Simulated assay, not measured.
Amino acid sequence: MKLLNSTLIFLLFILSFVTPSLFAQEKNDVIFMLTGETKEGKVTGIHESTIDFVYSGEDLKYELKKSDVLKIIFASGRTQIISQATTPTTNASTTTAAERKNKLAVLPFTMVSNDQGLMSEAMSGQIQHAAINSFKKNTRQIMVQDPMTTNAILLKNNLDLNSIKTMMPQRVAEILGVEFVVYGTANISFEGTRSYGTSSTTYQDKNKKDKDKKEEKSSGKEFTSNSSSTTSNYDTSIELNIFSDSGSNLYSVNRNAFGSSLDTYDGTLNYLIKRSPWGSKNK
């Protein structure tokens, strides 16, 4: 009997240390990020734009952006949705063929460059605008969609250049509400700089001789001025592909720009667009 009591006391003693740790490790709050990542620990606070979080087994508090969090499953079992996952809207309302007839949209250009300053959304949009202006000026029998309309529709449907590349051209045409879609690539390579210098000399002379005679100067002053300039050189090529809402590739062309300035893409676009199916040079 004494042995049994001693055993029970020993077991109760062991459980007094083990049980709290088992309960402490029982459950954690789980945060599900929009990227698919999960974080386990303790949510210590939820604010207007952030969530306070401590990883399991740590004491350091982290701030997570609510815009990056999908949901939280608390240790109690309660689930709280924080943000909604967004995916490209590929089931947008489809326009009819009659509504799209003779309409053309130019997508923002894909940029390829060794100059990181040119690998920007602003430069892509700038060349897109230049192409649209050229289509309006140098084509006939086609209605060119305003770039603000095109870009607004893309934004509304969560479409960027990367996601557009995963879609068939005819689907892009349907979403944009046009019959023709222009895909463009600008390859602009920085080739270095070149410096130019000039020098000129002028005289202030008290005694001026006849022009036909040898010029002599008994007294006077000589003035010399120098000037220099530096230009940046670029090697540019433009590629255009025009697809119809039936998926046909109507026009595919690539041309190297003439000249070395950054804006040579403009003249190259004019050359190519004039020779497109609706261009002024395509007679």
Rank of each mutant, 00 (worst) to 15 (best):
M1N: 13
M1E: 13
M1W: 13
L3A: 14
L3C: 05
L3I: 12
S6Q: 10
L12R: 02
F13M: 09
F13W: 05
I14W: 04
I14N: 02
L15V: 11
L22K: 07
A24V: 11
A24I: 11
Q25P: 00
F32T: 03
L34I: 01
E40R: 09
G41M: 09
T44H: 07
H47R: 10
D52C: 03
V54A: 03
Y55G: 06
E58G: 02
D59G: 09
D59F: 12
L60H: 15
K61E: 14
K66V: 04
Q80W: 04
I81E: 03
I82S: 01
T87Y: 15
P88A: 10
P88M: 06
P88T: 09
A92G: 07
A92N: 02
A92L: 04
T94I: 12
T96I: 00
A97R: 08
A97L: 11
N102C: 00
K103A: 04
A105L: 05
A105S: 11
M111Q: 05
V112A: 09
V112K: 12
N114S: 09
Q116W: 13
M119C: 06
S120Y: 12
A122W: 11
A122V: 15
Q126H: 14
Q128N: 06
H129E: 14
A131S: 11
I132K: 05
N133L: 08
F135L: 06
F135M: 01
K137N: 09
Q141Y: 12
P147R: 00
P147V: 00
T149E: 09
T150Y: 04
N157D: 03
L161G: 03
L161M: 07
N162M: 10
N162S: 13
S163R: 08
I164Y: 02
K165D: 03
M167F: 02
R171S: 14
R171G: 07
R171I: 03
G177H: 05
V178P: 02
V181L: 13
G184K: 03
A186V: 10
A186E: 05
F190R: 04
Y196V: 08
S199R: 15
T201D: 08
T201N: 08
T202M: 06
K206V: 09
D210Y: 07
D212P: 00
K214E: 12
K214H: 06
E215N: 07
E216R: 13
S218A: 13
S218F: 14
F223L: 11
T224Y: 15
T224C: 10
T224P: 09
S225V: 15
S229M: 11
S229L: 09
T230R: 13
N241D: 12
I242W: 01
S244T: 08
D245E: 06
V253D: 08
N256L: 08
G259H: 02
S261T: 12
T264L: 04
Y265F: 15
D266E: 14
G267D: 15
G267T: 10
T268G: 02
N270V: 14
P277Y: 10
K281G: 11
K283M: 08
